[in-house]
């Protein structure tokens, strides 16, 4: 009899507690959405993982600020080929991504990217 009562109380109590936790969680999510903290963090993570900054791309290819598209291609070709022969696939990837990054930058600036091949 007493055991049954205690069990009932326990079940009811845990149910209430569970609902409260759920509500608190929802509220926290809502607040995070309102202030945009969640989005910002997510975006930062994505940005850091997926893309390269223009500055890093230039550093990787060893180019100065106002190098022409021709120079970019020339650097890319030599570095990519050399790292294919004696370097590593990882470095080759970075060189490829650097060129990709600069390609969009140059296209936006309206400098012709003809003859890209």
């Amino acid at each position: 009899m007493a055991a049954k009562l205690i069990a009932n109380l326990l079940i009811m109590g845990s149910g209430i507690l569970g609902r409260a936790v759920l509500q608190a969680y929802r509220k926290a999510l809502e607040n995070a959405n309102k202030t945009g903290v969640a989005q910002e963090t997510l975006q930062n993570i994505r940005r850091a993982g997926r893309t390269m900054t223009e500055q890093e791309a230039r550093q990787i290819l060893g180019l100065h600020e106002n190098a022409s598209w021709e120079e970019v291609l020339q650097k890319y070709d030599t570095l990519f080929e050399r790292n294919g022969k004696m370097g590593s696939f990882y470095l080759q990837s970075k060189i490829h991504r650097a060129k990709e990054c600069l390609e969009t930058v140059y296209q936006k600036n309206g400098e012709g990217t003809q003859g890209t091949g």
Binding site: E56, Q59, I60, L61, G62, K75, T78, L79, R82, N83, K85, M86, G87, S88, L91, K94
Partner: peptide, 16 residues
């Protein structure tokens, strides 16, 4: 080996 391919004196970049 990797350094030979990327040496700054031979056209490689300082960053790499």
């Amino acid at each position: 080996k990797v350094m030979v391919a990327n040496h700054p004196d031979a056209g490689g970049s300082h960053y790499l």
